[in-house]
Amino acid sequence: MKTEIAVILGAGILILSGALPALAIEKDMCDVPMDQWQPREKLEQHLTAEGWEVQKITTDDGCYEVYATTEDGLTVEAYFNPETFDRVSPADD
């Protein structure tokens, strides 16, 4: 019985320890202080100039989350660094 509990606890620790790096990456995906963020309107202008049709811009995990149609006609949910407007990928991509 003690062996079974130890195995279950050990497996749980391994599972959780494997998830922690992913959580850390997601937390740091867009680690930018708010006073360094550019306005979302500027991001929309930038994307429109590249041929995107922006439906909505929100914030998620410290990033700008954009719902748009690209110049190629693809519907996307894309994440951008709010300081640089570089496109970033969520940890689960």
Rank of each mutant, 00 (worst) to 15 (best):
P21W: 12
D92V: 03
I15N: 03
A49K: 06
T48R: 10
P21K: 13
E44L: 05
D86W: 02
L16F: 13
L20C: 02
K56F: 06
K27D: 11
Q36N: 14
G51I: 07
N81A: 04
L9H: 08
K56H: 13
L47F: 07
K27V: 00
L74F: 12
P82W: 08
G62L: 10
P33A: 08
E44N: 13
G51Y: 07
I57D: 07
P82Y: 07
V88Q: 14
F80W: 03
V7C: 01
E41C: 05
K56D: 14
T70S: 15
T70K: 05
K27P: 00
K56W: 07
E83H: 11
K2G: 11
D93C: 00
I25T: 11
Q45G: 04
A91M: 06
D61E: 12
E50W: 02
R40L: 06
A78D: 14
D93W: 15
E44K: 11
Y64G: 03
K42S: 13
K42P: 00
I15P: 05
E83P: 00
Y67H: 13
F85M: 04
Q36S: 14
K27Y: 14
D86K: 13
I57E: 08
V76R: 10
L74G: 00
D35I: 05
V76H: 10
Q55L: 08
P39G: 05
I5R: 14
V7R: 14
E65W: 03
R40H: 08
Y79H: 11
L47D: 06
A68G: 11
G73Q: 03
K2V: 02
G51W: 07
D86F: 04
Q55A: 13
L47Q: 07
E41D: 15
A78N: 11
A6R: 15
T70V: 05
E50Y: 03
E65H: 09
Q45Y: 03
A24Q: 10
Y67V: 04
E77Y: 01
Y67N: 11
L23D: 04
K27L: 01
G12C: 10
E77A: 01
K56C: 00
G12D: 04
I57L: 10
